[in-house]
Every structure is written in C-alpha cells, then in structure tokens.
C-alpha cells in the first residue's frame, strides 16, 4: 500500500507547526553556542536554552513522524505559528546590543544611585575583580598596576573596603539631566534571571570636565573612589584621573550577573 506523502499525512497546520518547532530548535541552539543568550539570560540558564532546543526537536519529530493529523487547511491554526515567530523577528533587530540609557533612565529608582548600598543585595564575589579588566592590555603592560580593577557591583557592595582607594572600572557612560553633584554616571546592568529584571548599577563620576562623550559609550575609568554625603545619602563617587573610550565588549561581557 502506498504511503501518503508528508503534506497529505500531517496537513498544512502540522507541517507549519513542525517547521516552527525546528526554527525555534535551531535558534535556541545557536543562541547557546554563540553565547548570544547572555544578552537576555543569566549564564546559569544556558542549560535551559539547550533543553528548549532538544524539546523543540522532539516536538517537530513527533509531528512529522507521529500519528496522522486531520488534513484541514485552517488559516486560524496557522496564525499562532506566526505569533510564535514574532520574538525571532525582534531578536534579529537587537543582535549584539545591550540595554542602554533608555532602560537606565526608566529603571533607576532615585535612591539606587544616590546611595552606596554596601549590602548583600548584589551577592558575594570574593575576588571582586572584573574579568574584562583583568584581561585588559593595560594590565599586561603593567603600566597602571596601582589601580585595582573592580566591577561596579563589587564597588557598591564593598563600598567601605574601596573607600579612598585607586580603582579602575569599565561601563557605559550616561549624563543624566539636572545632575548637580557629579558629571555623569558610569553604569552597567545587573541581571538576576533575565534582561527584563535587569537593574542598573552605577557610580557617579567627577572630573570629566567639559562633556566630550556621548551617552552610552563604553569607557574605562581610573580614579579615587569615595563616598560623599549629600541630601541625606552617601553617594558613591569616582573622582577621575583618566577616562578613555574602549571598544564595546562582546555581548557576553556587557552585563553583570547574579551572584557575581
């Protein structure tokens, strides 16, 4: 007996669903192997992305080689597939970019940058050294060894430890309107689970002088860290010795992740 062809067997709806699941399987797998998923999720969720990829393949196989579908050509049953493809369209509109000053301005709560937390909120990182800066050519040349490379989250978490010490850090630059006691904010985003819950963490910086940088450029700064009491809060401030533009780090090094 002649077997029905695939289209006749599973119908347009089944075929569309199987293709959709295969697309998501490929996208999930690619996000994992290229580390692109780190633009959206924290590293520990990588295993979940792989899991998704495997299950999507299983789904596609079960539809393609499983039992027979009704061969109806229902447009109504194909529209959900288009909805399920929408996130992929939006993924490709934001590749290789991280959250910027728009998200910073939307998410920052006044008190979050106006005071040094010095609390457990950001978790523990015994090393406290920023991985990106450890690999910086500046260190390899040994020219600025007296500056301690530190991530912004660690600087805030261990405010007292770094008080009056020379530190260097990197992040994005933002010039908020009506900022009176500092020139700008050096910030990065701190992801607990996904970019939707990412919180901006930043320190104020002084000593830039006239504004010669745009918002959202990546810079490496060196200076002295201190806490300045103003308007009832202790404000984390870095008085600059130097500031320089750096190339935008790869997407897997742009965010800080819980619990680092």
């Amino acid at each position: 007996m002649k077997k029905p062809n695939l289209y006749k067997k599973i119908g347009m709806s089944g075929l569309v669903q199987a293709m959709l699941f295969l697309t998501w399987a490929i996208i999930s797998f690619w996000l994992f192997v290229s580390n692109q998923y780190l633009a959206y999720l924290q590293p520990k969720f990588g295993i979940l992305v792989v899991f998704s990829s495997v299950v999507f393949i299983l789904f596609a196989v079960s539809l393609l080689f499983g039992k027979q579908h009704s061969p109806h050509h229902q447009i109504g049953s194909i529209l959900p597939a288009l909805i399920l493809l929408l996130p992929i369209f939006f993924l490709f509109s934001s590749l290789d970019t991280g959250l910027g000053s728009k998200a910073f301005a939307n998410r920052i709560l006044d008190a979050e940058v106006k005071q040094a937390p010095d609390s457990d909120e950001f978790g523990e990182n015994p090393e406290g050294v920023d991985a990106h800066l450890q690999e910086s050519p500046l260190d390899q040349k040994g020219a600025v060894k007296h500056y301690t490379a530190v991530s912004i989250s660690h600087l805030l978490m261990k405010s007292k430890q770094y008080k009056n010490r020379q530190v260097k850090a990197y992040g994005k630059l933002f010039f908020p309107e009506n900022l009176k006691f500092a020139d700008a904010v050096l910030y990065r985003f701190y992801i607990t689970c996904c970019a939707a819950d990412a919180r901006p963490v930043g320190v104020f910086i002084n000593g830039i002088g006239e504004r010669k940088f745009e918002n959202d450029v990546w810079v490496e700064v060196e200076g002295v860290y201190h806490l300045k009491k103003s308007e009832g809060d202790k404000k984390p401030i870095l008085t600059l010795h130097s500031i320089k533009l750096i190339t935008e780090p790869p997407i897997d090094q742009q965010y800080l992740y819980f619990p680092d």
Binding site: W24, Y40, L48, V55, F90, S93, T97, A103, C194, A195
Partner: peptide
C-alpha cells in the same frame, strides 16, 4: 526598539523552557 526587543525576547526566552 532595541530596548523593547531585548526585554520582549528575554521574557519569552526565559519562559519557554
């Protein structure tokens, strides 16, 4: 659009598994 796309895709990618 960049901010929206990151948030939208992040919510979906986290929820899918």
């Amino acid at each position: 659009l960049n901010t929206f796309s990151i948030i939208f895709f992040a919510i979906v990618l986290e929820a899918l598994p």
